[in-house]
Amino acid sequence: MKRWAWLCMLCLAFQANAGGRDHAVGTLLKTEGLSADPRAGSQSMATLERGERVEILERQGGWLKVKARQITGWLRYLSVKHGEMSKSGVDAGGILSLAGGRAGTGEVVSVAGIRGIDEEQLKSAQFNEREYAKLEGYGVSREVAQQFARSGGLRARVVEYPTQPVAVSQPQGIPR
């Protein structure tokens, strides 16, 4: 009997988890037009307001395919905050893998209850010779790094730094 109860609970938990993944939710960080296609200058089908919720369907490069107000379209990846706004925080590991376009691993990040690195520790820190020597020892040359990159299929390319934007929006909280 007890075993059945456990199984039921497991199933429920699994379903709840899967449900959350299928309908990833996002919140707009700024007011933006819902584009018909994932490219700049494409037709805007509606203007979505900052703080408005959308359903995230997929990601393509710097764009997210979303559904909002019964319309499906595209928003800039950097204009949408992923996930529900929740006070307790959500499964960050899952969110990350979703952002990468993959199903989540379901790993829950457990960080509560352990003392973090704080100001006091940093102020009273003592130099650690042994660990510093280890850090130095792990360093690799440019050539080794290049070889490593090549083996992964990475190809260096020219991308200019952006100039600092002239007009920046004032940071504001998102209405809940």
Binding site: L78, L96, A99, L154
Partner: peptide
Amino acid sequence: ARAGYDPYGLADVLQAIGHVAKDSSSIRL
């Protein structure tokens, strides 16, 4: 991006950090 990676990796991480509970001691600093 120059190194050939998906340039939105950092944004992914910012998303994740935004979902860690604000009052968690692990993220206070």
